[in-house]
Simulated assay, not measured.
Amino acid sequence: MTSQPVSVGVYSHQEIVREGIMSLLSRHPDKVAVVPTPTHPGDPDPDVVLYDVMALLDGDTGPLGYLVDMTASKVLAVGHDLRPDLVGTALTTGVDGFFSIGADEKELLAAVESAATGWRAGDPGENPTVGSSASAARANQLGGDLGLSEREVQVIALIARGRSNQQIAAELFVSINSVKSYIRTAYRKIGVQSRGAAVGWAIRHGFGSTD
């Protein structure tokens, strides 16, 4: 880790989650310093904030938006496997990455380290500890808040990269008719009616337009 302990704030509406994560982190004072999470201008910004996505259950993204837009902290979403839509909402709001509430102590520390020191080369991949901006895991979560299936996410991502229907079919090993079906259902879910609008939506929501 870094030479100084990484300052970490934990944001959760659930006391058991908040206290549990803080307790695990507090066992490593040489690596982590648990500090208050900033809520108002003038509050000190931790190096990293761990944000429990269950705080989004009421649809209020204001506190998360404040952490993302108004602080210098790296913000990691703490995801729950039964609510991938909330992770999708957090990613759309602009968090720097995510990891599962089921992560063990070693993975938790690795997530904090990754956020504080920059994404390690080993993070991007199918199952990273932290879903950084370059990871396949992050892409699979995008659009979850709108009910996009994994296949629909793949199709939208490929459209954003300029692939034709034929190229998408070849890359995903599906038929052209299947691609058209995925496109129709995905367009309906994201509220667009054209390929150009789909590309614009994808870029605005973090899919990117290049490989």
Rank of each mutant, 00 (worst) to 15 (best):
I183R: 12
R195L: 11
M54G: 03
D123K: 02
P5S: 06
R188E: 15
G208D: 01
Y11S: 14
V8H: 03
Q154L: 05
V35N: 03
R163Y: 15
I21S: 08
N177T: 14
I168D: 05
G143C: 06
G144P: 08
V34K: 01
A139S: 15
A160M: 04
G191D: 11
G144A: 07
M54Y: 13
M22Q: 15
T117N: 09
G9T: 10
G125A: 01
V192A: 01
G59W: 08
R188F: 11
E15L: 14
A202Q: 02
V75A: 10
S178M: 10
A72V: 10
V17G: 09
A169P: 03
R188W: 09
L76T: 09
E15N: 12
M1C: 06
D52E: 10
G9A: 10
S209F: 06
D47M: 02
G20T: 09
D81I: 10
D123L: 11
Q141F: 14
L148T: 00
A115I: 01
L67C: 11
I156R: 00
V10N: 04
N165W: 07
S23D: 12
G97A: 11
H40N: 12
P5T: 01
R188T: 14
D45L: 03
A186T: 05
D43N: 11
A33P: 00
S149I: 04
G59H: 09
G162R: 06
S7D: 07
H28L: 00
Q166L: 14
T185S: 12
V174R: 05
L142F: 08
Y187I: 00
N140C: 13
A186D: 05
E15P: 08
H40L: 15
I190S: 01
L56V: 04
V75M: 08
N165Y: 15
A170R: 12
T2M: 10
Y51K: 04
L57N: 09
D47C: 08
T2S: 13
A169S: 13
